[in-house]
């Protein structure tokens, strides 16, 4: 099962731009590789990533097979107030990996 790693600050000032780093353990099988017998290995990738903060969409991305194995994605956003950064990665098979990080504004 894919596992997500997220680096996010625990606190921020209101209106501060914070940078979030994410890394998910996933093969990102492109669907172009062949196995030992010459058969195409079916595509299986993480095809979508979304991040919301305090319920508001920050970013929603569509990933193609050209995204490397163990997809790394870094993004930045302005923190208005204390809230939860909710991130979700979606696999081709519909399964999802979620992670939430709370950022507190003093």
């Amino acid at each position: 099962m894919a596992k997500a790693r997220v680096k996010a600050p625990k606190t921020a000032a209101a209106g501060e731009l914070v940078t979030i780093k994410t890394l998910v353990n996933h093969k990102m099988e492109s669907g172009r590789r062949k196995d030992g017998d010459g058969n195409l290995i079916p595509r299986k990738i993480i095809n979508a990533f979304t991040a919301t903060f305090g319920g508001e969409e920050v970013i929603s991305a569509k990933f193609e097979p050209a995204i490397s194995t163990n997809p790394y994605f870094q993004f930045s956003f302005t923190v208005p107030a204390t809230g939860d950064l909710v991130m979700q990665w979606t696999d081709d098979d519909g399964s999802t990996v979620e992670q939430t990080k709370t950022i507190t504004v003093a």
């Binding site: 596992k3 790693r5 680096k7 780093k21 890394l23 353990n25 163990n70 790394y72």
Partner: peptide, 12 residues
Amino acid sequence: DFDNPSFIFIEQ
């Protein structure tokens, strides 16, 4: 250590 992809495997 976050940018280093090895740490996925360290966690494993």
